[in-house]
Amino acid sequence: MLDAGDWSAIRLTLLLATITTLFLLLFGIPLSWWLARSRCRWKEAVAAVVALPLVLPPTVLGFYLLLFMGPQGWLGALTQALGLGLLPFTFSGLVIASFLYSLPFVIQPIRDAFVAIGDKPLEAAATLRASPLDAFCTVALPLARPAIVTATIMGFAHTVGEFGVVLMMGGNIPGVTRVISVQIYSHVESLHYAQAHWLSGGLLLFSFIVLLLLQRFRPQAGVWH
């Protein structure tokens, strides 16, 4: 069955996924709004950069993060100058890596929803003297709610399932950076297949439930009555 190390990995993974998802929503919703509404010509370039983790192998992303956050990287130099030390091998480092890795899964659905809302509801709100911020909070956000729920579940689930990046960035420290996927990998690699099965089975069940929930929040437009 599960031992203390496994439970510690489970707790850590849930904590990481929760914090990462909060940051994803905090930054992802405004960024999606900007990507959907802005006429800035750099918009598409920013959208492409955000989508990069979809294409890059996690080990590539992990390796570059290791370089950027290291003593020779500009981010590493910045964090050291601020007295924060270096980010690799810390929980904060993992949060940042997970944030970047899961960002496209949050941006994509929310941005599409904001685009689909179009100008009309916002113009209507403006004629009723709603300020842009007011219109965003009382019109756009409620209309995009299904997409935001989808994005939250996707962001959380994707963070739970990530592996390559955390392995590169985390240094596999118990209680700090050793998450479920790394723990499973260690069990398999050290030929402890029974223990790996328990954790993998749990993760499988979790993923199934998440995907099932996701189906419930899908728009039912394709259904003909």
Binding site: F63, L66, L67, M69, G70, P71, Q72, L86, P88, F89, L167, M168, G171
Partner: peptide, 10 residues
Amino acid sequence: QTHQFVATGN
């Protein structure tokens, strides 16, 4: 990977 940790100075 251990080598990478040291080679990148982290």
